[in-house]
Design a protein around this nucleic acid. Structure first.
Lengths: 370, 370
DNA sequence: TCAGGCATTGCACGGTTGTGCATGGGAAGT
DNA sequence: ACTTCCCATGCACAACCGTGCAATGCCTGA
């Protein structure tokens, strides 16, 4: 068994066998290779089987290279029989491009981020890239560790879906000529895709006021990510600019529990409950609606209008029917990849921004007045 | 500008410059390299700056290698100044292990799968591997294309979260010595992690009967994935073994809409509605509950008891409070990685199975009798 | 002071692929 | 039939990194 493989190997890589043939070491080494590691088919083996040189194999799998149909056919058949696939790693080492692209995200399983990372992965694969999902924490050390993994593997670019990287992150990427695209966070030094948070907040405020609502609240979170923050400040500003006031309540993260906390905060204060709440995202809205309906006995939208943000699939569920601002994950992924391609084509240009204005989706939790 | 970079390059890689210096071609090539490709720092450049040989640099970054503290310090400083990181691609080419591990999933953003893929990614990173997320369709061609990407990049292993790969998939992996671990699907030829679907179904049936329920239904889907199928057949068998009958309704996929469809199917038939429904997963249960409550005016659990499967976070939401079987994504990821490590250590062994028995989580949608 | 041993370092090679260059052969034109 | 040209193919080297082997230098002990 071992000897068969050994013979096979040394036939495949003659020079290696001759070089190492000193005192039985060869057998040891090859045995280890065949048992412990993987044994991928190499271009050399295909060449031998097809009776051509290794260059011919390489050219067969290089688009636009000059190979005769006859040898091409021989090579393809030998490759098929052996199950050969070009080693993209070695190809990457050669011309310094790995096709790897990093997606850095915190909690990529939750809410809109799940859809965004999935859309990114799908789009990158279609483009011929290889998406690497780095699921990491928010802290600077963790982000830097993620970056080191990606640089170590010579990733072509990094897409940051969440988290706020330290300056050293960008410095490191820049020095290695590695483009960085951020989604949802405005970083002056990096390309980024941004949702039109302030436009949406403005629209929500105008519609609620126009529908005759008067007691306003904003349900946000203390995680203070830029997108959440922008929605809050823009909504408060828009309401106050029209002469009304807004109560702002915040949970810890930006999830369902945050919505519970926010609603209960509003109920705890000795004031009439709001008749219109704009939530920083859909998950918060669901938590808030559940508390308002089940614990305060309110009706939505008769007693209180609720507007969310993101349009995750649950917004369409019968129980919620949430009016919200649609963020299209495919569109955002598309823009991110566009930015990335433009940056690769022109590494020296100034940072670029893609801004996507979310469109409101009307459901039962609030319908604007005619 | 271009000339500066060119000088820089040729200083860094003298031999290359000399070799290629024939008729101005050098400038062209280097210009292209510096503008179009990335320019990572190589060990050679660090060696030059530190005034040592390239081997010394390599040894500095190889744990357990023999380097004097003095040169080590020089190398580390030069590496720091240049922003050097070991090229894991080239390292992988050398000893035939890339640290890349593929996660193949269909719709990785939805339901329990989102949690599972996220847990896998986190665990693989902690282990020092690099998770590649292949978001692909269910068809055989798409799965095969995913596999080709992974083999091309010499991924060490593939973890299949969803989808039913063709036989050629396993053949290809086997021939390349690439371990395949499947989650949730029993494949006779591959290692897999499996949830104890039949045990859970049995437990659900027994508890519902013991609580005095008599009109049973199972809400599944026509996607016919093995896990869904196993839950259905085991539940039906368990109920019928005790002398009762079960109505089985199915939607298209295994999501919320499927629950809507299932519930409306039950309502359309001219029979009394069931007083106990076991759902193939939580999402189906949510859809079913929404229809039963909002369209049929039923109360849960008084009129109908509902049990789900997976325990996604929404099961704890106030509006649902769903009794369900908990699948721990971290535990499943842990087992998958365990399988993988055992397979790498012993490539020739027989296929192995890790079976995880889900634990029931009691909430308001059904409480068993004392 | 000399010799021996040990630690360290440089050299060259292994493992992949792509590609410039030279060459050989076949086809076509005269 | 000879010459010319072009296409294809093999050779060698580029790009990375780790590591065995040999040599060198330093330190210590006698």
């Amino acid at each position: 068994m071992g000897s068969t493989i050994e013979a096979d190997r040394s036939a495949g890589a003659l020079s290696a066998a001759i070089y190492h043939a000193s005192g039985g070491e060869l057998v040891m080494k090859n045995d280890k290779v065949s048992s412990n590691r993987m044994r991928f088919v190499s271009a050399e083996q295909v060449a031998q089987r097809a009776g051509v040189s290794r260059s011919a194999v390489s050219r067969t799998f290089t688009p636009g290279a000059s190979v005769s149909p006859a040898t091409r056919e021989k090579v393809l058949q030998a490759a098929e029989e052996l199950g050969y696939h070009v080693n993209d790693l070695a190809r990457g080492v050669l011309n310094n491009q790995s096709r790897l692209i990093g997606i850095v995200a915190t909690k990529p399983e939750v809410g809109f981020r799940a859809h965004l990372t999935a859309a990114l992965a799908k789009m990158l694969i279609q483009r011929g890239s290889v998406p690497v999902l780095i699921n990491t924490g928010e802290t600077e050390e963790e982000l830097l560790a993620a970056q080191k993994i990606l640089i170590g593997h010579r990733a072509e670019a990094t897409i940051i879906v969440s988290g706020s990287p330290p300056a050293s992150f960008f410095e490191l990427a820049k020095r290695n000529g590695q483009p960085v695209v951020m989604i949802g966070r405005a970083e002056p030094d990096a390309d980024h895709v941004q949702a039109g948070n302030s436009e949406a907040s403005e629209q929500a405020a105008a519609a609620l006021i126009h529908a005759g609502r008067r007691r306003f609240a904003f349900a946000g979170s203390n995680s203070r990510t830029p997108a959440i923050l922008e929605r809050e400040t823009a909504f408060v500003a828009a309401i106050e600019a029209r002469g009304f006031s807004v109560r702002v309540v915040r949970g810890r993260d930006s999830d369902y529990d945050s919505g519970l906390v926010a609603a209960r905060q509003l109920m705890a204060e000795r004031q009439p409950l709001p008749d219109a709440v704009f939530c920083a995202n859909d998950l918060i809205a669901f938590g808030l609606m559940d508390v308002f309906r089940l614990e305060a006995g309110l009706r939505v939208p008769q007693d209180v209008a609720v507007i969310g943000f993101d349009d995750v699939p649950q917004s369409g569920w019968l129980n919620y029917r949430l009016t919200t601002f649609r963020q299209d994950p495919d569109a955002m992924a598309r823009r991110a990849v566009d930015l990335l391609e433009r940056r690769v084509a022109n590494p020296e240009g100034a940072p670029d921004v893609e801004r996507i204005i979310p469109r409101i989706v009307l459901r039962d939790s609030f319908r604007p007045a005619e």
